[in-house]
Nucleic acid binder design. Structure first.
Lengths: 239, 239
DNA sequence: GTCTATAAACAGATAGAC
DNA sequence: GTCTATCTGTTTATAGAC
C-alpha cells in the first residue's frame, strides 16, 4: 500500500479531488508571450483545449474524462496538449477559473438604486439565458460544488462571499424599505440560483418530463415567465 | 486503437457513462437466499457495501471512486466485494436503484383532496428534511442527472414521468379551482425540487456563504420558513 | 512546437486455494 | 464465502528526436 511516488507541487488552491491519489507533475509550462504576433496561435490553441475540456469535464467529470478524449476533441495530440498544460489537474483548474468569472457576472449587475422588481426579473432572465447558452458551464460548476469544491473553495470563500454579502446588503435595503417581502437575503439568492440553474443542471430531466428544452424559444419564454411569477408573486393566489 | 475486449452484457438500462470505455463483465452473482437464517449476514454485508458506495460515489462520482476505496470503507476485501456485485457498474446501478425509490417518496404524498397550501408547505418541509438527512442521496442523484442520466434514463422517462404527470394533474386542479395562482404545474414542481435540493447539492456553497448547515436546527427552520414564503407568497410585498 | 515511442503504475477483474 | 496472487488493458505522463 505504500506510495513511492513523488508529490506534485499542487500549487495554491489545489486539494485532492479524490481520497488519496497523487499523480506526478512536471515543470510549469504555458509559454505565453509578447503583445501580438503569431503567439495568437498559441492563445487560440489554449482556448480550443479549454473549450474541449469544458465540454467533456462537464459531462463526465474530471475522472470520467481522459486526456486522450480532450486532445481528440480539441484536435491536438496528447503530447502537444501537455505542452500547454502541465497535467490533467492543471487543465481542470484552468477551466474552472475561466468559468467562475463568467458564472458570477449576472450577479454583479444588481444595484440598490434599481427597482427591486426589475432587478429580480432581469436577473432571472439573464441567469436562465445563461442556463440556455452555457449549460456546460453551469453543470461543471455544479459538479465541482457537489464534490465539496476542492478546487474552488478559496475563491468561493473569498471573492464569491464578498460579492454575495454585498448583494445581500442591497436586498436588505429593499426589504427594510418595504419594497420586498421580509425574506432573508441569502435564502432569496439561493432560491434564484437554484431555480435558474436547475434548467441547465437538470436539463436531461426537464426534457424527459416536458419534452422540451430552453433552446426552444417558446419554452424559454414560458420558463422565464413562470420562474419570475413563482419567485416574485408566489404560487398562491393573490388576495 | 482497436478494441479486442469482450463486451459486457450490460443488462437492461445500462448505457455508457463515458464516451467509449467498455469493461469486461462476469457471471451474475448475488447469491441471495431463503427466508431467514444466517443469510441475514449476506444482506447486511450487501447493505454495508451499498452504504459505503453511496458515500463515495456521491462525493467523487463513479469514475472518481475506486473499488478499493469502497471495499475499504465497507470493511470487506476487494475480492469479496466482487462476490456480491458482478462489477463496478453493477454496484453503481444497485446504489442508484435504491436511491430513486426513496428520492421519489415525498412526491407520492401529494393528493388533490389536500389543501394546496398545506400540501406545498409540507412538501417543502419534507424535501428539506431529506436534504438534511440524506444529502449524499440527493447529490448522487444530481450527479447522475447532470451527466445525462445514462443509467436512470429509462426510469425517469417511465416511473418518474408517470408520477409527475399525475401530480401535475393535481396541481392543475388546484389552479383551475382558483386555489393556486396560474402557474404551469411542471415549472412549479421544478421550482420545488430546485430550491429544496439546492441545500443538499450546494451544501458546501451554502455553508461557505452563511457559515451554517441544515444540521443546525435553527438554520433548518429558518430555511423552511424562507423557502415556503418565497415559493408560496413570493418575494414581493403583498398589496 | 510537435511528434514517436515508451515508461510507470494504477484499477478492474479473475483464478484457484481454503 | 473469503483470501492471496496475479493478469489485463488503460491512462497519465515523459524522454528525446525533429
Amino acid at each position: 500500500m505504500l506510495q513511492t511516488r513523488r508529490f506534485t507541487d499542487r500549487s495554491a488552491l489545489s486539494m485532492p479531488t479524490t481520497p488519496t491519489k497523487p499523480r506526478p507533475a512536471r515543470k510549469a509550462v504555458v509559454p505565453a508571450a509578447e503583445g501580438t504576433r503569431r503567439h495568437r496561435q498559441i492563445a487560440d490553441k489554449r482556448a480550443a483545449i479549454l473549450g474541449a475540456a469544458l465540454g467533456l469535464f462537464s459531462r463526465f467529470g474530471l475522472h470520467g474524462t481522459t486526456i486522450d478524449q480532450v486532445a481528440a476533441a480539441a484536435d491536438v495530440s496528447k503530447t502537444n496538449l501537455f505542452y500547454y498544460f502541465a497535467n490533467k489537474e492543471a487543465l481542470y483548474v484552468a477551466v474552472l477559473r475561466d468559468l467562475l468569472d463568467v458564472w458570477l457576472e449576472p450577479l454583479r449587475a444588481f444595484a440598490a438604486d434599481q427597482d427591486p422588481h426589475e432587478a429580480l426579473a432581469g436577473y432571472i432572465r439573464s441567469k436562465l439565458a445563461f442556463s440556455r447558452d452555457r449549460p456546460e458551464a453551469s453543470r461543471l460548476f455544479c459538479l465541482e460544488v457537489i464534490q465539496g469544491a476542492p478546487l474552488l473553495r478559496d475563491e468561493l470563500a473569498n471573492a464569491l462571499r464578498a460579492l454575495v454579502d454585498e448583494k445581500a446588503g442591497v436586498i436588505r435595503t429593499w426589504v427594510d424599505g418595504g419594497r420586498l417581502a421580509p425574506v432573508d437575503p441569502h435564502h432569496l439568492v439561493f432560491a434564484l440560483w437554484a431555480v435558474t440553474q436547475h434548467y441547465a443542471d437538470f436539463a436531461t430531466q426537464v426534457e424527459l418530463l416536458t419534452g422540451r428544452t430552453l433552446a426552444d424559444p417558446d419554452f424559454f419564454e414560458e420558463t422565464v415567465a413562470n420562474v419570475q411569477r413563482i419567485v416574485l408573486q408566489g404560487a398562491e393566489p393573490r388576495a
